[in-house]
């Protein structure tokens, strides 16, 4: 008897919870604050700076969403999440959206009941080696010792790659990036493998970055992007199209600085629709006319965000590569705003 009451209550809670999740947009508006699941320790992508303010490539997307929905890029609360807690935090409703370099995979999308609404960074696993090793391709790494973080997909990718190329290696397992870097620097391993974006930051922090090279092979696909819960499609649309607005802005040459002058002078109907000068696209997903304009004004377009946080002008120095616009040979492609 007692048991059934308990499970009944549990079921009721679940139903209520489901109902509450159905309107993330309303929740965010009522709260006046976007809760963004963030990374606390990924150089260039997301971390608090010396004053405690979150900065980074992923963080700027949170700011753009807050600007689009609430009209103020500062109305974001960043909830620090770890690799272990991130998906539960999203599923339990503790965060509205997870922008934390999470790889889009089949099982996460289906089994974990999430929606990866876009890919804001195409990453992949690469290798860094010392120049003096005289290696120019990962396929020449036969018999090498490789530093690898345990418990990650990179470990499995590494095994697959070496098996597929019929060469051998000795893994040196490490706990985290800083330990890996230390082991690599001390000569405990010939090569260090992790996501290429992380490798670039690691290389920049070594004593003589020029003595190390990142090999050209990328052995895995790591599409990283913002994640929302299954079932709240309107909220997913908002996150997705906010991101696409940033891409479209780059394609059309709209920047943080010129957004007002472009708005005044443009004759391009798509730009007019994007900036809310023509039609009312925001209303279709429960926002006002100028949502995209605010999102772009928050931290600039996609290219500006990239350059400011991780681009070639920063110490991390990542090239656009796959993340260039489709017009420049990359994969970043926004569907038409129509």
């Amino acid at each position: 008897m007692k048991k059934s009451v308990f499970f009944g209550a549990l079921a009721a809670t679940t139903v209520l919870a489901g109902a509450a999740f159905a309107g993330t947009l309303d929740d965010v508006k009522a709260r006046g604050e976007l809760i963004c699941g963030a990374n606390v320790g990924l150089t260039g992508f997301g971390a608090p700076d010396a004053t405690g303010a979150y900065v980074g490539f992923d963080v700027d997307l949170c700011k753009a969403i807050a600007a689009a929905v609430l009209g103020d890029a500062a109305k974001v609360k960043y909830v620090p999440t770890t690799g272990e807690t991130r998906f539960t935090a999203l599923a339990s409703g503790e965060v509205d959206v997870l922008v934390r370099n999470s790889t889009w995979t089949f099982s996460r999308d289906t089994d974990l009941k999430f929606d990866f609404v876009a890919v804001n960074y195409y990453d992949g696993q690469g290798f860094m080696v010392k120049k003096e090793l005289g290696v120019s391709s990962a396929k020449e790494l036969d018999g090498a010792t490789v530093c690898i973080q345990t418990g990650t997909t990179t470990e499995l990718n590494l095994a697959d790659f070496f098996k597929a190329n019929n060469i051998s290696y000795t893994p040196v397992t490490v706990g985290d990036d800083s330990e890996a870097l230390r082991q690599y620097d001390a000569g405990a391993c010939d090569a260090y493998t992790t996501d290429a974006s992380g490798l670039a930051a690691s290389r920049a922090s070594l004593a003589n970055p020029a003595d190390h090279i990142i090999l050209p092979e990328i052995i895995s696909k790591e599409p990283l992007g913002p994640v929302v819960r299954h079932g709240d499609n309107n909220w997913g649309d908002i996150v997705r199209w906010t991101y696409y607005a940033l891409l479209e802005a780059e394609e059309k040459g709209i920047t943080k600085a010129n957004i007002d002058t472009v708005g005044a002078s443009t004759t391009d109907p798509e730009v007019k629709r994007l900036l809310g000068l023509e039609g009312d696209m925001g209303a279709m997903m429960g926002l006002d006319k100028e949502w995209a304009k605010r999102a772009i004004a928050a931290s600039g377009n996609y290219g500006e965000i990239f350059e400011a946080n991780i681009g070639t002008s920063t110490p991390i120095g990542l090239a656009r590569g796959l993340n260039a616009l489709w017009t420049q040979g990359g994969l970043q492609y926004a569907p038409p705003f129509r």
């Binding site: 150089t43 260039g44 700076d49 807690t85 800083s178 690691s202 920049a204 922090s205 070594l206 920063t314």
Partner: peptide, 22 residues
């Protein structure tokens, strides 16, 4: 659980700054 304890939490945050990485 994502709280900034002195040993791992704050250290990770400090290391995420490109100036102190490594």
């Amino acid at each position: 659980v994502g709280l900034a304890d002195p040993l791992r939490g704050i250290t990770t945050i400090v290391r995420a700054d490109i100036a102190w990485k490594g």
